[in-house]
């Protein structure tokens, strides 16, 4: 593991990064609880990728750069500006949900206020979309960068090829990410593609590409810092394959014990990326056990308070169903 000092981040910044990682885990667990008790109907979880997500998102300029996330990118979306309450409003389908105002399933993040483009469920369609977002920077002669993510299962879609091909031609200021957790729902990675590394696809488009261990905070941070700088300087697109874990089933409608062995699941739990990161933080002198406990309490309080606020937030009025079909007329009736 790369030493955290190598990131060049201050102690305060590293501690804040950890706080977001821990907040992501506690919030994710809350979303599972809300689903189990029937207050939400669905969760698709990012547990196991929090360290990679935070280290990926941190090096970008969140006020200028654009983000097109996929459904596991809750913590990355929060680094871009979404709040704990925003996430809960989406899970509960409330009017104030900034992602969709109660229209999409949970975890389909978006926020016009925070430069996060709405995500639909048809995986990989965000890749061509992101090339349009990125091309606008060239047209506008601005230096904002676009970050777009998807899972490794989705990289088999034709949209993946079309977007990378075009981005290479136009040298777009864009960072493509494939978060590889080695399962597309239940389909193991060997049934998804034949190569050893998805990052090798970059060679075919003559763009920069690399595989990064998303369990290694400093290595991930540095890789994305370099990628963002590279894209921003006009050198062209970057493809990063970010290796992460998927601790939970694909979603609350899946049971991964059917297709992953007990040993594999035990090894996942034993190597949970967050305790591993906590150990590193202690060893490298960033935090003490006591401070870790304090942060846990702090983020738990934040999640509890946000849950209360989100639950009290009004549901959409039924009339909302008919709005925003067209710009100037209402559809549906």
């Amino acid at each position: 593991m790369e030493k955290l000092k190598a990131t060049g981040l201050s102690k305060k910044e590293i501690v804040e990064a950890y706080r977001m990682i821990k907040l992501g885990r506690v919030l994710d667990e809350r979303l599972w609880q809300l689903t189990r008790i029937g207050k939400s109907s669905f969760i698709i979880s990012g547990q196991g990728s929090e360290v990679g997500q935070v280290a990926m998102a941190l090096p970008f300029q969140h006020k200028e750069d654009m983000f097109l996330p996929y459904y596991r990118d809750m913590v990355a979306s929060m680094i871009w500006g979404m709040s704990t309450k925003d996430i809960l409003l989406g899970s509960l389908g409330k009017q104030e949900d900034p992602s969709s105002h109660g229209r999409q399933m949970p975890n389909h993040y978006g926020s016009v206020e925070h430069n996060i483009v709405s995500f639909g469920s048809t995986v990989t369609t965000q890749y061509p979309l992101a090339t349009g977002v990125a091309y606008s920077a060239i047209l506008n002669e601005k230096d904002y960068v676009t970050l777009v993510t998807t899972g490794e299962g989705s990289a088999a879609e034709g949209d993946f090829h079309e977007a990378l091909n075009f981005a290479g031609i136009k040298k777009l200021p864009i960072v493509f990410v494939v978060e590889n957790n080695e399962y597309a729902i239940s389909t193991p990675v060997e049934d998804e593609f034949s190569g050893k590394k998805l990052a090798d696809h970059a060679l075919a488009y003559h763009i920069k590409g690399d595989r990064i261990d998303g369990r290694d905070f400093a290595a991930t941070y540095l890789a994305f810092k370099e990628a963002a700088d590279y894209a921003r300087s006009g050198k062209g697109p970057v493809l990063i394959e970010l290796m992460v874990d998927r601790m939970t089933a694909h979603s609350s409608d899946d049971d991964q014990s059917i297709y992953r062995s007990d040993d594999e699941l035990k090894a996942l739990r034993d190597n949970d990326v967050i305790p591993v990161f906590e150990k590193q933080l202690i060893e490298e002198g960033y935090l003490t056990e006591k401070e870790l406990d304090d942060i846990l309490k702090e983020v738990t309080d934040e999640v509890n308070q946000a849950t209360d606020e989100a639950e009290q937030s009004p549901d959409p009025d039924v009339s909302e169903l008919y709005k925003h079909v067209y710009a100037h007329t209402e559809g549906g009736r």
Partner: peptide, 28 residues
């Protein structure tokens, strides 16, 4: 050539590119 250009033979990309530009205030 920035405002008027050829695309590869990639219709999903053409549609996505246009839509992404629309999101950013352009009109493709």
């Amino acid at each position: 050539d920035r405002r008027v250009f050829n695309t590869p033979i990639a219709e999903a990309e053409i549609a996505g590119l246009a839509t992404g530009l629309g999101l950013m205030g352009h009109h493709a």
